[in-house]
Simulated scan of single mutants.
Amino acid sequence: MPLQQGSARARQRTVLLVGIAVLLAALVLAVVLASLLTHGRHEVSPQMLKWKDRGTTKNLQEVIVGRCYNYITAQHPELGDKDCLKIWESLKDAFIYKNPCNITPEDYQPLMELASHPIPCNKSLFWSKTNDLVHRYTKSNQNFLTLEDTLLGYMADRVSWCGDPSAPGINYESCPKRNECESNPGSVFWKMASKMFAEAACGVVQVMLNGSVEAGAFRSSSIFGSIEIFNLDPDKVTEVHIWLMQNIGGPQRGLDPSALGQISASLALCCCGSISSNGAVLEPPGLGMGLRDVPQMSPCTKLSCKMHSWTPHGHHRASTSKGQWQPKFHNPHGFPAYWQTSF
């Protein structure tokens, strides 16, 4: 009897050991299979899309949130109720894990609503091909605001971002240029922000154009010529003052009659001359506005004097085809002298 009991216990131990061995073997097999499957998925996972422009700005969240807090606390405390973390989340949601060529205006709509704020009348300053000058001007003259001086523009200025369908959802290596795809995160953002900035303008609006670029001062393909000009509200905007910036010693192409016609037609405002059949600029009916004579020291000329310590001299007047006057300045340092032209 004792012998039989000992034999039974031995069989139980053997069965138990075999069972443990089988479980261990199954566990090892499961680990090996999981490792192989994970490794295989890693190898076949899609690569980050490659583009020609710079990638997402490093530490993008810290940059955006930091600029936002600086804007609403140090620069514009009246906007202190803005939620910078929500603004960041709405920006991130607009592009993360998305193909950067398939961004839509709807993606940015929550961001536009969270970051929008009123623009005081008579302060809106639009620009084209005068980026450096116009922002040096607004930094020294608080009477005007460009898009980059608003919360949206301030946060996004000189910053880039784009997503990617693969993890981690943000491409820090490269982002698409406009000529690679039109609906990229940067282009869609700036078009929407520019549209909103134009819609908010009221009173007298200023426009700073570069009269020395080969393509001409007014280009219908620019953001100003294709977006902003069409979204100025004629019920709110009373005048548009155009400042032509010219390089002395360089080409001075100015604003030709056809460009004036484009601006006039696009604005649908009585602020610019119309174009007759022979190409001459005509006075708008009942306004008596055309090319105005400008004081010798226009606002931009004063800025140039302050920054570069030179005084315009050799001032003379040159008659236009209409018998009106435009000021010209001689600058011994070769720094641009400026014309302010009001229509």
Rank of each mutant, 00 (worst) to 15 (best):
Q5S: 12
A8Y: 11
A10L: 15
A10I: 15
R13D: 10
T14G: 11
L17W: 07
G19C: 10
I20N: 04
L23Q: 00
A34F: 08
L36A: 09
T38E: 09
T38H: 12
H39V: 09
H39G: 15
R41Q: 14
R41G: 05
R41S: 12
H42M: 13
K50D: 10
K50Y: 03
W51Q: 03
W51V: 05
R54H: 06
T57H: 07
N59H: 13
I64C: 11
V65R: 12
G66S: 08
C68V: 06
N70W: 02
H76W: 06
E78T: 10
C84T: 09
I87V: 15
E89N: 14
K92E: 14
K92C: 04
D93R: 08
F95P: 04
F95M: 06
I96N: 01
K98Y: 09
K98H: 12
N99T: 04
N99P: 01
T104V: 11
P105E: 09
Y108R: 04
L114G: 03
L114Y: 04
L114H: 10
P118W: 01
N122T: 03
S124F: 02
F126A: 00
W127H: 12
K129A: 13
T130W: 00
H135N: 12
R136H: 10
K139Y: 13
K139N: 14
Q142Y: 10
Q142I: 07
N143C: 07
F144R: 10
L145T: 12
L147K: 03
T150Y: 02
L152M: 15
L152Q: 14
M155S: 04
M155Q: 08
R158C: 12
S160C: 07
D164P: 03
E173P: 00
E173L: 12
E173A: 12
S174K: 03
K177N: 13
C181E: 09
C181A: 11
C181K: 08
G186H: 10
W190M: 12
M192T: 06
S194K: 01
M196R: 11
A198F: 01
C202I: 02
V204I: 13
A217E: 00
R219Q: 15
S221M: 05
S221W: 05
S221T: 14
S222R: 02
I229Y: 04
I229V: 15
L232Q: 02
D235A: 07
D235M: 04
K236W: 02
I242H: 03
I248T: 11
I248R: 08
G249H: 01
G250C: 05
Q252F: 01
L255G: 05
L260F: 15
L260A: 04
G261E: 07
Q262L: 14
A265L: 11
A265S: 13
L269Y: 01
S274G: 13
S274K: 11
N278E: 13
A280I: 08
V281Q: 06
V281H: 01
L282M: 14
P285H: 09
G286D: 10
G290N: 07
L291D: 05
V294W: 00
P295F: 03
P295W: 00
M297S: 09
P299V: 02
T301P: 00
K302E: 13
K302L: 13
S304C: 12
W310T: 06
P312D: 04
P312E: 05
G314W: 00
H316G: 09
A318F: 00
K322Y: 06
K322A: 14
G323Q: 04
Q324W: 08
H330N: 14
N331V: 15
P332Q: 05
G334L: 02
P336Q: 04
P336D: 11
A337Y: 03
T341P: 01
S342D: 11
